[in-house]
């Protein structure tokens, strides 16, 4: 669904050549960020392309909290100007990308935060961040038993006993 609302020119700083975006989080926090920083997001880029067809300025409403949004902006700011293969829409799908050391530290957060970040990255279509988060989550559960996986990620077992121990069975649940 579209997440754009019209705003007055006066609501957005950055008149003239400076390209600024107004991002609005689900907790109604307004965050102004340079367009260049967020250009890694295919979602944002597509929105901005839409803006250019009209003379109106816009804000982009996003379905996650300012806390999560700020983390994403931190990520995009860190890689501002850097070319990451995963984020190039014209590039062939990359193989397994190298582990970026900074990402590992950046994603050293609790489970819920990690899941929120990956959801936000998916929504914003930042493939490099989705990949790094996915790797981090996979690292959390790799080698764990089924029970441990459930406990780590807060998943409830909805199998019948027969289904649970028959991994090939098609699920009805």
């Amino acid at each position: 669904m579209p997440t754009i609302v019209s705003v007055d020119d006066s609501t957005v700083p950055g008149e003239g050549s400076s390209r600024l975006l107004l991002l609005v989080s689900s907790d109604n926090k307004h965050i102004v960020v340079e367009e260049d920083i967020m250009s890694r997001s295919r979602f944002i880029s597509k929105q901005v392309e839409g803006f250019e067809a009209t003379s109106q300025r816009h804000a982009i409403l996003l379905p996650f909290s300012s806390f999560v949004l700020n983390k994403v902006i931190e990520y995009c700011s860190h890689y501002r100007g850097y070319y990451l293969l995963e984020d190039d829409p014209d590039a062939a799908p990359p193989g397994r990308s190298p582990v970026r050391e900074w990402d590992q530290e950046f994603l050293d957060v609790d489970r819920n935060m990690l899941l929120r970040i990956i959801k936000a990255a998916h929504y914003l279509e930042i493939k490099s961040l989705v990949g790094s988060c996915a790797r981090a989550i996979a690292d959390m559960i790799r080698g764990k038993t089924t029970e441990e996986m459930r406990e780590i990620l807060g998943v409830e077992n909805d199998f019948t006993p027969e289904e649970e121990h028959s991994p090939s069975s098609k699920c009805t649940g």
Partner: peptide, 10 residues
């Protein structure tokens, strides 16, 4: 172990 994911939930 990686296939344990098939037994976590439906």
């Amino acid at each position: 172990r990686w296939l344990s994911v098939t037994q976590v939930c439906s």
